Amino acid sequence: MGARNEDGPLAYAMRLIGDWWTLELLHDALDGNTHFEEFRDNLKIAPNVLANRLSTLVRTGLMDHLPSESGPRHDAYVLTDLGRALRPVLLALTAWVNDRLPPERRSVVLVDAATGREVEPVLVDRVTGRRVDTGAHVLTAGPAAGPEVRARYTARHSG
């Protein structure tokens, strides 16, 4: 039986992201929306549900709530560094879905802002510039790995 890594990076990501609506709100925030009404109108969501979801994003550290002196209607919800760091993940998910759809079914595409040409994102190693989505790169146990995770990855990489 494989080792379940509840403290691993994917488990951590899912604790932060949780549900699909988190991605929708993050997408809206990355598009520049900051106010409750903008999120509500774009996502067609009930105000009480939206308030709970924004509260969750603030609590998990993905967004900051910036109260306005003009009153709650002008409060802003802005991405934190942690929230902005999810941009490449959202772009990669968008590209992954679009790659499986015929072009006429793609509702949103990633383009070069200067040329308007559609682009295809890839994940590369910052140091070497090499793509990491090939068999030349593998996951292995990290410094915080417990015995079961170490055994799992040792077995995979030993022959």
Rank of each mutant, 00 (worst) to 15 (best):
G2P: 13
G2A: 15
A3S: 07
R4A: 12
E6Q: 09
D7N: 14
G8W: 00
L10Q: 11
A11W: 00
A13Q: 10
M14Y: 09
R15Y: 05
I17G: 00
G18L: 01
G18S: 06
W21P: 04
W21A: 11
W21N: 10
L26K: 00
D28G: 10
A29M: 03
N33W: 12
N33V: 13
T34E: 13
E37N: 11
R40I: 05
D41W: 03
D41F: 07
N42K: 14
N42H: 12
L43T: 04
L43N: 11
K44D: 13
A46R: 13
N48I: 12
A51K: 11
A51Q: 09
A51F: 06
R53W: 04
R53C: 03
T56N: 09
L57K: 06
R59A: 14
G61A: 04
L62M: 07
D64E: 14
D64A: 12
L66V: 15
L66E: 12
E69P: 08
E69A: 14
S70Y: 15
S70C: 06
S70N: 14
G71Q: 00
P72N: 12
H74T: 12
D75C: 01
D75L: 01
A76Y: 02
V78K: 07
L79C: 02
D81L: 09
D81P: 07
L82V: 09
G83D: 02
R84G: 02
R84L: 05
R84Q: 05
L91E: 15
L91T: 08
T94C: 10
W96V: 05
V97R: 12
V97W: 09
N98P: 06
N98C: 06
P103E: 11
R106S: 03
S107D: 12
V111M: 00
A114P: 01
R117N: 11
V119A: 07
V122M: 08
V122A: 15
L123A: 14
V124A: 10
V124M: 06
D125C: 11
D125F: 03
D125V: 04
R126K: 15
V127D: 14
R130E: 15
V132C: 09
V132N: 07
V132G: 12
H137G: 02
H137L: 10
L139Y: 11
L139H: 03
A141F: 06
A141P: 00
P143Y: 14
A144T: 14
A144P: 06
P147C: 08
E148K: 14
R152P: 00
A155E: 13
R156Y: 08
H157Y: 00
